[in-house]
Design a protein around this nucleic acid. Structure first.
Length: 207
DNA sequence: CACCAGGAATGTA
DNA sequence: TACATTCATGGT
């Protein structure tokens, strides 16, 4: 188990339970509507701060766009007009549409897609244009409760600082976390959230 | 006014 | 494989 679990415990002691976006993302259990909101957020938050994502999600809610099916029926151009605050709105509207199109046309609903085996679900998500490793894993972990560890810049920075791994790339780092922690999606959800919260904290002289 | 934020696709060498 | 560029709003 090396000391990854210890790092998690230190972070939890320092920051407590995840807040803000993480109130929803780390909630257990989630309703289907909440899972679908996580999926929308996963695309919208690409290279964008969460505040801007919230503005976009609010625009969607004001228009009663709350389900993946609503997104699917709305169409790319109207999606774009509502998600402008999240930035990159033209391309994100297309990405979001690609994703909901994939789910609805192949599985009819998110409930059905949720039943798909982790390995297969990950491979198929990665084929959707606009869904890369981090977005795919965020969806699997936070919307579908699958035990995959999400790697982002904050995670890389943390491991780099602590010099726990010499070769830093997405797949190797993900393997490192998953091999040195018990296979528990609850732990993965909270741990990743805490890493991000910690990474955004400027005065991070802990441990 | 300059810089950056939970990325991913595309093009170049 | 490894970088560079593009996409774009809102906060500091």
């Amino acid at each position: 188990m090396i000391n990854l679990k210890k790092i998690y415990q230190e972070l939890e002691k320092k920051y407590g339970k995840p807040n803000e976006q993480w109130n929803l993302w780390c909630k257990r259990p989630k309703t289907i509507q909440e899972r679908e909101e996580v999926i929308m957020g996963a695309i919208l938050t690409q290279r964008t701060n969460w505040k801007n994502v919230e503005l976009s999600l609010k625009n969607l809610k004001n228009k009663k766009i709350i389900s993946l099916k609503d997104i699917y029926c709305l169409g790319v151009q109207k999606i774009a007009s509502l998600i402008k605050p999240a930035g990159f709105y033209e391309i994100k509207a297309q990405y979001l549409f690609n994703l909901v199109q994939f789910v609805i046309e192949n599985y009819a609903s998110l409930e059905k897609f949720k039943d798909v085996d982790l390995k297969e679900a990950r491979e198929k998500l990665l084929k959707v244009k606009g869904v890369g490793p981090e977005t795919a894993d965020s969806i699997l972990l936070y919307a579908l409760d699958k035990p995959v560890f999400v790697i982002d810049e904050y995670t890389k920075r943390l491991i780099r600082e602590k010099k726990m791994v010499n070769k830093i790339n997405y797949n190797l780092l993900q393997k490192f976390f998953e091999e040195n922690l018990e296979k528990d999606f609850c732990l993965y959800q909270d741990f990743h959230a805490l890493i991000v919260i910690h990474g955004k904290n400027k005065n991070f002289n802990i441990f």
